[in-house]
């Protein structure tokens, strides 16, 4: 039995689902099934076949775990792993410093999916290069809270002044962005994160450093971004050449800068 395949060759039907009630139970199950993913909203794991990936043999379903759905922005912004994007958008709306998070969580995906996708799932889907929520959290310098290997939430210290999230889509929405940029202004400097460009969203520290504490005009940031894009390891997708992402990213940077200035 030790050699049991770690993947299911029978699609969704072949997944053994474990349903812990507490974080401790979840961690214990993970100890027993190290390859079993945690499943919250389900929207990532359920689409594994469409990504050409096999489903796991075991999955740990978190939706019954108590204590992971807290959401508060008083003083510090604290969000539990099971909070949905729709919920994040609702609790952060109107808080200027958290606006990047509000925009990322209210523009990503679709209205129905935003009611399913969770914060924890968004952070755990490490292969998700087109995440909106991750660049937003990166520019806000969010701290990920864990118990064992389980992400239980994030904490954001509310010291920033303003932030925004700009995403470029070809259609009116409902799709992964072609490039996205999250910017937060903290003191004289900017924190800038990008999504949908490289294999993983990340802080664009090269651009932050180049921008320094000079004038934060859209034109200047666009030009600086243009001088740096060639160093990005941009991903291509059907119909979207990597070069196209590099071409449009400075424009998205400029649009985000214009909104935060």
């Amino acid at each position: 039995m030790g050699a049991t395949a770690a993947v299911s060759d029978r699609g969704v039907f072949g997944v053994e689902v474990h349903r812990p009630r507490t974080v401790d139970e979840a961690l214990h199950l993970r100890g027993q099934h190290p390859d079993a993913p945690y499943v919250a909203g389900g929207t990532w794991v359920m689409r594994a076949p469409q990504r050409g990936e096999a489903l796991p043999a075991h999955a740990i379903l978190l939706n019954g775990v108590a204590g992971l759905d807290h959401a508060s922005i008083d003083g510090t912004c604290e969000l539990g792993a099971l909070v949905t994007l729709a919920h994040i958008a609702a609790v952060t709306r109107g808080a200027g410093d958290l606006q990047a998070l509000t925009e990322a969580s209210s523009l990503a995906a679709t209205p129905a999916l935003r009611r399913m996708i969770t914060l924890g799932g968004s952070l755990a889907a490490d292969a998700f290069w087109a995440s909106d929520i991750v660049p937003a959290l990166l520019c806000l310098d969010a701290e990920i809270v864990r118990q064992g290997d389980l992400i239980t939430g994030v904490r954001i210290s509310r010291t920033g002044k303003a932030s925004c999230h700009e995403r470029l889509t070809w259609r009116s929405g409902g799709e992964y962005s072609v490039a996205s940029v999250s910017i937060a202004r903290a003191g004289d400097s900017l924190r800038i994160a990008i999504g949908s460009v490289e294999a993983c969203p990340r802080r664009w520290t090269e651009l932050e450093d180049a921008a320094g504490s000079g004038p934060m005009t859209p034109e200047r940031l666009r030009d600086l971004a243009r001088s740096l894009v060639d160093d990005l390891d941009a991903v291509s997708a059907p119909g979207i050449p990597a070069d196209y992402r590099r071409t449009v990213l400075p424009e998205v940077v400029a649009r985000a800068t214009a909104r935060i200035a």
């Binding site: 969704v12 389900g42 359920m46 379903l61 939706n63 129905a112 009611r115």
Partner: peptide, 19 residues
């Protein structure tokens, strides 16, 4: 495939029934 789950619209194709 949109249905209401506890009053919220969700796409039932990606919702594990067990949840």
């Amino acid at each position: 495939c949109t249905v209401l789950l506890d009053g919220e619209p969700v796409v039932s194709c990606l919702m594990p029934a067990i949840a």
